[in-house]
C-alpha cells in the first residue's frame, strides 16, 4: 500500500534548452564519464521526431538509456545521453552498441536502447525502445513479442551507413511509434 502519490508531470516546455549541454549526446566525449572507453562497437543513432501532421519537432529532446556492450547497466559504461532535435527534427547520439540484456525469468533481451521523448505539447515524456534490425535475438525478445507484429517495425532501427542506425519517432497518426510504460 503506497503512502504517497507520485508528483504530477508537467511539460518540459519550449525553453528546456536552458539546461541543454549538447555534448551529452556524445556518450564517448572527451572528459565525459566514458572518456577513453574502448570496448564494443562505436555507433551513431539518429532519427526524426514528427507529429500528427508529419511536421518535424525541432524543439523536442530525446534521452537515451542503454547497457554497455556486455549487457550490463552502469557497470563500466555510463549509459545516459541527451540530444536535442535539430532544425530537421533529428536527434543524433554517438555511443557503443549495447549487448544482449538479461530478461525476466530465463529470457534474454535483444540488444536495445531506450529512447524517451520530451517536448512542448507532451504533458509527460513518452518512452520507446530502439532495436537493431537483423539481430537474431529480436525474434525471441520478450518485449518485442508483446508488440503487435504490424507495429513492431516502429521499434527496429535500420542501418543508414557504416555504424549508423536510424529510427524515426512518430508521435501521432500513421506509423505511430509504439510507446511502452511500466
Amino acid at each position: 500500500m503506497s503512502k504517497l502519490v507520485a508528483t504530477a508531470a508537467q511539460t518540459i516546455g519550449p525553453y528546456w534548452a536552458l539546461i541543454e549541454h549538447p555534448e551529452w549526446a556524445d556518450l564517448l566525449r572527451a572528459g565525459g564519464p566514458n572518456a577513453g572507453y574502448d570496448k564494443g562497437e562505436r555507433i551513431t543513432l539518429t532519427g526524426r521526431v514528427t507529429d500528427g501532421d508529419g511536421a518535424t519537432c525541432p524543439d523536442a529532446v530525446v534521452e537515451l538509456w542503454q547497457a554497455g556492450p556486455d549487457g550490463e547497466y552502469e557497470a563500466g559504461f555510463h549509459g545516459y545521453g541527451r540530444s536535442r532535435c535539430d532544425a530537421d527534427g533529428c536527434f543524433h547520439f554517438t555511443t557503443v552498441k549495447p549487448g544482449a540484456v538479461k530478461g525476466r525469468g530465463n529470457a534474454t533481451q535483444a540488444p536495445h536502447v531506450t529512447l524517451s521523448v520530451f517536448a512542448r505539447g507532451l504533458m509527460n515524456h513518452v518512452s520507446t525502445r530502439l532495436y537493431f534490425s537483423g539481430e537474431a535475438l529480436n525474434e525471441t525478445d520478450p518485449v518485442l513479442g508483446q508488440v503487435p507484429e504490424a507495429r513492431r517495425g516502429t521499434l527496429i532501427a535500420r542501418p543508414a551507413g557504416a555504424g549508423v542506425w536510424q529510427l524515426d519517432i512518430v508521435l501521432q497518426g500513421e506509423g505511430e511509434t509504439v510507446f511502452l510504460e511500466v
Partner: peptide, 19 residues
Amino acid sequence: STHKRHPKQAPIRIAPTLT
C-alpha cells in the same frame, strides 16, 4: 500544442526488466 503531439494509441504496459 498537445493536439498534434499526443499519441492516439495507448502505450503497451510491460513488466519491468533490468532496463
